[in-house]
Write a protein that binds this DNA or RNA. Structure first.
Length: 150
DNA sequence: GCCAACGTTGGC
DNA sequence: GCCAACGTTGGC
């Protein structure tokens, strides 16, 4: 059992969208490190901090869980998609996704609030220059955040 | 819109 | 394999 923080732009998929759809495919990851974590490390049932990024109030907006193993991201084959990748083929897909299932919406734990807790200072997502859309979360950080959101 | 940080590309 | 140029992320 592992824990993750996964960033989504709420204009694209917000926590309310996830609540309405229950399960969404985590399409659009185009970074090899993030892809490799989905493909090689994530397991069904892993805990997910659902994070809103690139928006007015970035922060953790809810809890979710990994709901599938990795499989090819269909948007890479769609010429109409902004995530289209001409160098990827169905025979040899370059980009993968997992399904993520809604668990619950929480109050927004904003990025600014997260930075105020010394207990969270070592979180990967809070490190200077951290841009990865998927980052591992330690059991200690997970438990602390669960406490804040209880 | 700015810009720091980091990833990717491609010439050599 | 190096590294400069370019592109992207994402907070502010």
């Amino acid at each position: 059992m592992a824990y993750w923080l996964m960033k989504s732009e709420p204009d694209d998929v917000s926590i309310d969208d996830l609540a309405a759809r229950h399960t969404v495919g985590w399409y659009g990851v185009r970074n090899y490190q993030a892809r490799n974590m989905m493909r090689d490390t994530q397991q069904i049932g892993d805990g997910v901090l659902f994070y809103h990024s690139s928006c007015a109030e970035p922060g953790i907006a809810g809890i979710a869980e990994v709901a599938s193993h990795a499989y090819p991201d269909p948007t890479q084959f769609d010429p109409q998609s902004k995530y289209y990748d001409a160098k990827s083929t169905p025979e040899n897909p370059r980009w993968m996704q997992v399904d993520v299932r809604f668990v619950r919406k929480t109050r927004l734990l904003s990025l600014a609030q997260m930075r105020q807790y010394p207990e969270l200072a070592q979180m990967q997502v809070l490190q200077k220059g951290s841009r990865l859309s998927i980052t591992p979360v330690s059991a200690e950080h997970w438990a602390f955040i669960q406490g804040l959101l209880a």
